[in-house]
């Protein structure tokens, strides 16, 4: 009796290792998976080997994933994704800001995803813009919901400008800049775009951020240097 028990235990341990190693055929793999679900000792064995053998993956070279990889995943998630409450979005941002400083390029793609999730909770297709500083370093990501007129702009890098105000401008093609108001370099800001300006919001328009005296441009036009700009585009 105890002998059989010991042999079962042995077999279980061996099968778990073989499952993790990947040498079992399809039928044996399904059987192992069913056993993981009902046999805790076996499941622990599998976890043991996954953790220990996992290090062998070090030797596998990393490869650039397909360019449309994330887009395909987003498309597949589609409506299955939860529509986040605005509250959840801000929480997300707080988590997320810590990392933007370390790897801002990586962060931009995710920021776009973040704003997008916030934006699709309202009707109307959002337009997105990545505002790059000189040299192509992303500084802000913005999304406008053309239906409701809400514009959310999120800093993607740490920008210090305590003695200045940052002012956001909408520049329609062939037109002069229109102020959208002041933004905060340290946190996301949502701006309600005035109705008459909303008509100018299109794929061709550009968003720009300029440095202005505290309180904003005294002239109604940008007076300081433009520190970041980018063209609006639909998703």
């Amino acid at each position: 009796m105890s002998d059989t028990g010991a042999r079962d235990k042995e077999n279980g341990a061996l099968t778990a290792a073989e499952y993790v190693l990947g040498v079992l055929d399809a039928d044996a793999r399904r059987a192992a998976e069913r056993r993981i679900a009902r046999d805790m000792v076996f499941a622990r064995e599998v976890a043991f080997w996954e953790e220990r053998l996992g290090g062998l993956a070090d030797a596998v070279p990393e490869l650039v994933a397909p360019a449309d990889g994330w887009a395909r995943i987003e498309a597949a998630l589609g409506s299955a994704a939860t529509t986040e409450e605005p509250h959840g979005m801000w929480q997300s941002l707080a988590f997320w800001r810590g990392l933007a400083t370390a790897t801002s390029a990586l962060a931009v793609a995710c920021l776009a995803a973040l704003i997008y999730v916030g934006a699709i909770s309202q009707p109307g297709a959002p337009l997105l813009a990545r505002l790059d500083a000189e040299g192509g370093k992303p500084s802000f990501v913005a999304a406008i919901n053309t239906n409701g007129g809400n514009l959310t702009i999120v800093p993607a890098a740490l920008l210090g400008a305590e003695q200045k105000s940052m002012e956001l401008w909408l520049i329609p093609p062939g037109d002069k800049p229109h102020s959208l108001g002041l933004i905060d370099p340290n946190r996301p800001v949502t701006i309600k775009v005035p109705k008459d300006l909303l008509r100018e919001v299109s794929n061709e328009a550009v968003l720009a951020v300029s440095l202005e005296p505290l309180g904003g441009s005294p002239t109604g036009q940008p007076t300081g240097p433009v520190i970041a700009n980018g063209k609006l585009a639909s998703l």
């Binding site: 993956a57 490869l63 650039v64 990586l106 995710c110």
Partner: peptide, 27 residues
């Protein structure tokens, strides 16, 4: 965060690990 349905967090996981996992899959 992904467990709580946070899509941007999944994006972050993807950005951090897709090169490794793509290497594993392709191998």
């Amino acid at each position: 965060r992904v467990a709580g349905g946070d899509r941007p967090a999944l994006c972050l996981v993807y950005e951090m690990t897709s090169a490794k996992l793509f290497g594993v899959c392709l191998r």
